[in-house]
Nucleic acid binder design. Structure first.
Length: 510
RNA sequence: GAAUCGGUAGCUCAGCUGGUAGAGCAGCGGCCUUUUAAGCCGCGGGUCGAGGGUUCGAGCCCCUCCCGAUUCACCA
């Protein structure tokens, strides 16, 4: 867009004019650096920087801060304004007689706007009303903004609650212009910082156990490791169809075959499905595989790791989510899937055949489509009658083999596999199994998937011959897990939409 | 994919039964040297999501489409 574009608002045009005036005055509106000595948050915390009224400021009491101008209150020959840096917002007091007539009257009062980056040097004092403030001794424009920022204002009322006026609250604008959202809505930043700290805490927890963080292909010739529709792409030089990964499971298990005892990857996965409050086409999971362990061990591991995450982020195992309090203190209840269904519906599905289950599904008002298969129907019943009721973290264990083609047969229970899902706040946050390492069984399971695919299940898996070859070379007993990072982040940050824990959620083009 | 609600100034919103488009903040011109949603005086700013229709006349009624939010369905 040119700076004479007719589509610009009046305010944008005014700011472009100010930019030109600054240049005419010989002021570079985009200088190269500024030496910051203090962050706003540190100044606000550090009483020893406060200067008393009697003595002139010592060198140790001089501060330089930089950030965006967020509010301005001009009172003739002196002004107050606030500057927001990465840590907080601090008030600045500036006087004509301290910084010079042109600097104050022309540059500061006329040519600087809300949103501009500025650098201030001065000393710290407290105003009459007790607000810690920097008395500016010099002032420098660091970057001129030519687009007006939304200008929310926060006020504390008599009860000590913060009231926000003119909040930048339009969700569409907030998601499309996350950079603006981050500038004017401080809580947004907090949620993303928490997300990062959560990932760090998990990474440290796994590193401490000696597991190796690895990277595996995002572009895969055969997609696998989950049931989902993939994104399809094409490699020109090899003239080859490739898929964006829906999971990295099969690659991490190849690494277990290769002799690593524990490998994990924070993996951006891609599923070509609809969008919702809980679904974004690209999302993050951490998958972890540990040799010589089973799913019982993995439950111990997961509850301890998530308990650790909660303590790291909140200093407690208890977290407020909506109007619930969720307690991540281990151990979490472990309930076999069929028992959970029986408790909620009165029907025992164990060792029932597909016809019998279809009859029960009908009685439970579950919509059954052709080609859904036994596993899928059971999953439907579970989703409809059980999942949403599990608010406190719970392990649901022992799934039907039909819906778990990569999990090992249960050591005792007929027709089931050693699998668990961790459910929390009514949603799945993790999925794990004793990994199937019997190559003949694995081949049969793949073939069953192919059959389901032919019967119309468009999410069924394909046979991955190279993966079969890998486990034919031998894979030790292994426990594996995938934990949904976005879902867990939603809980840890009390967000009710996945979009609030993704910087840039997928949106239709403007 | 379906239903509901919404899209009006840079931001947040009002706009009745159809009759020349409003407020606060932000902006512009003044006054103001400890203010804090600073204050006071004055001013400008709009393709009312897009297109079509009905009407003497449409922000408002009708149709189509676009975008979003929420709920439901599928998926983690």
């Amino acid at each position: 867009m040119s700076n004479t574009d007719q589509s610009q608002s009046e305010q944008q045009q005014v700011r472009h004019e100010k930019l030109a005036q600054l240049r005419e005055l010989g002021v570079n509106p985009y200088p190269y650096k500024f030496d910051v000595s203090h962050l706003a948050a540190d100044i606000l915390k550090n009483e020893s920087l406060l200067k008393d009224d009697e003595t002139p400021p010592s060198d140790a009491q001089k501060v330089s801060v930089a950030g965006r101008v967020m509010t301005r209150r001009i009172m003739g020959k002196a002004s107050f304004f606030t500057v927001q840096d990465s840590t907080d917002t601090i008030q600045i007091y500036i006087r004509r007689d301290d910084i010079g007539v042109e600097e104050y009257n022309t540059i500061f009062k006329k040519l600087v706007d809300i949103g501009d980056f500025v650098g201030i040097s001065g000393f710290v004092f407290k105003t009459r009303t007790g607000e810690t403030t920097i008395h500016a001794e010099s002032f420098e424009l660091l970057s001129k903004t030519v687009r007006p920022l939304p200008t929310p204002k926060e006020v504390e009322n008599e009860e000590g609650e913060m009231i926000t006026y003119d909040a930048f609250s339009d969700k569409e604008l907030r998601y499309r212009q996350r950079y603006v959202d981050l500038v004017v809505n401080p809580d947004v930043k907090d949620a993303f910082v928490k997300r990062t700290k959560m990932v760090q805490a998990m990474r440290e927890f796994m590193n401490e156990k000696g597991y190796l963080e690895v990277e595996t292909p995002i572009l895969q010739p055969i997609y696998g490791g989950a049931t989902a529709r993939p994104f399809v792409t094409h490699h020109n030089a090899l003239d080859m169809q490739l898929y964006l990964r829906i999971a990295n499971e099969l690659y991490l298990k190849r690494l277990i075959v290769g002799g690593f005892d524990g490998v994990y990857e924070f993996s951006k996965d891609f599923r070509n499905e609809g969008l919702s409050r809980f679904h974004n086409p690209e999302f993050t999971q951490v998958e972890l595989y540990v040799a010589y362990k089973d799913y019982n061990w993995m439950m111990d591991f997961m509850e301890k790791m998530v308990e650790h995450v909660a303590k790291t982020l909140h200093g407690s195992t208890k977290i407020k989510v909506g109007d619930q309090t969720i307690d991540f203190k281990s151990p979490w209840p472990r309930v076999p899937m069929f028992e959970a269904i029986r408790k909620e519906t009165g029907f025992d599905l164990y060792e029932k055949n597909e016809e019998e289950i279809k009859v029960i599904a009908k009685e439970l008002n579950i919509h059954v489509e052709d080609g859904m298969g036994k596993g899928k129907i059971i999953d439907e019943i579970f989703g409809e009658y059980v999942e949403g009721k599990l608010i406190q973290p719970t392990f649901i264990t022992d799934y039907p083999v039909e819906m778990s083609p990569l999990a090992k047969m249960h050591r005792e229970k007929n027709g089931l596999v050693e699998r668990f899902e961790a459910i929390c706040n009514g949603k799945e946050i993790a999925n794990a199994f004793s990994e199937l390492n019997d190559p003949e069984d694995q081949r049969r399971r793949f073939e069953d998937q192919v059959r389901l695919g032919k019967e119309g299940d468009d999410e069924a898996m394909a046979v991955d011959e190279d993966f079969l070859r890998a486990i034919e070379y031998g894979m030790p007993p292994t426990a594996g897990i995938g934990i949904g990072i976005d879902r867990l982040a939603m809980i840890m940050t009390n967000s009710d939409s996945i979009r609030d824990v993704l910087f840039f959620p997928l949106m239709r083009p403007e």
